[in-house]
Design a protein around this nucleic acid. Structure first.
Length: 274
DNA sequence: CAGGTAGCCTGTTAGC
DNA sequence: TGCTAACAGGCTACCT
């Protein structure tokens, strides 16, 4: 579900509600959502700790706890983090709840049960494989145009698959990869090693522009995504090609086509994207 | 290494 | 209307 802009929006909406709060109790209703440690150990370790900060790496949420510990959450397709009062009716997809010292609670909900939660000492962050495997965050200022070009070096796959590979650059998912490639006028099936310097420069610029614009619009809600107050995003109305098969390209007026690329839907303007 | 597929789940939608 | 198949924003394991 959420890609970089949605995760960034969730975090910015959670921070004022969570930072400084102590977790006074924890309940796990669906054990498999907590990957490590065991649900019993998770409940014991997490309860009593204070949330001192929330960070993002790609699509991962990192909840910093006092005494140098960390909760790592990935929402995958349909995961939600909702902060609300105890009285708010509970969703049938509620799997984990954290009770807070201000009377509110943080809920982890996930219809498709693909999301993941891990707890670990801060020192294990570097060795935690899912985080270790990530390339630089797409909005990290350290990711310069040259750095992006270097990330592409030695690869020959379709550019769309490369953009979705979180080990190359993290944060882009299917929606924004489609939008970025359209804006950069690059066909998703172009092999990454055939891109000219000019095209990489366009790609770089469009990644930053699209993601920043989507953050400003508080993310894209096509179906499931909402922020931590339950409020949907706004960027879906800004989408140029994603989900718009048969509609007209906003730039040239040709019909947008849908094709399969790496098993995922790719939406392209056959006129603009070469 | 690249690229395809199945699998993890449930719900919605397109098509017959 | 009712049923079924395909599909949905992610990621991994496994195969060719």
């Amino acid at each position: 579900m959420p890609e970089l802009p949605e995760v960034a929006t969730i975090i910015s909406s959670l921070k004022p509600l969570l930072v400084g709060r102590r977790i006074t109790g924890t309940e796990v209703f669906l054990a498999k959502m907590v990957k490590s440690p065991s649900p019993e150990d998770f409940i014991r370790e997490v309860t009593g700790r204070v949330i001192t900060g929330i960070e993002r790496k790609g699509k991962f949420l990192l909840f910093l706890l006092d005494q140098s510990h960390l909760i790592v959450v990935h929402l995958r397709m349909t995961g939600r983090l909702i902060c609300c009062s105890l009285e708010t009716p509970r969703d049938k997809y509620l799997h984990v709840v954290f009770y807070l010292d201000d009377g509110n609670e943080l809920r982890f909900q996930d219809m498709r049960q693909f999301g993941t939660i891990n707890f670990m000492p801060l020192g294990d962050r570097q060795s935690f494989a899912p985080l270790q495997a990530l390339g630089p965050d797409a909005l990290d200022p350290a990711l310069t145009r040259d750095a992006l070009k270097k990330r592409f070096n030695g690869r020959r796959g379709h550019i769309k698959s490369v953009l979705l590979d979180q080990a190359v650059v993290c944060g882009l998912g299917n929606i924004y990869a489609n939008e970025v490639l359209w804006k950069a006028r690059i066909h998703p099936e172009r092999s990454v090693d055939t891109l000219t310097n000019n095209e990489v420069a366009r790609l770089y610029k469009c990644i930053k522009e699209i993601l920043n614009e989507a953050v400003e619009h508080r993310g894209t809600t096509l179906r499931d995504y909402v922020d931590s107050h339950g409020v949907p995003g706004d960027f879906q109305k800004m989408l140029s090609v994603h989900g718009r098969e048969g509609e007209l390209c906003p730039v040239c007026g040709h019909k947008i086509e849908k094709l399969k690329c790496g098993g995922r839907s790719a939406y392209v303007c056959p006129c603009c994207q070469k």
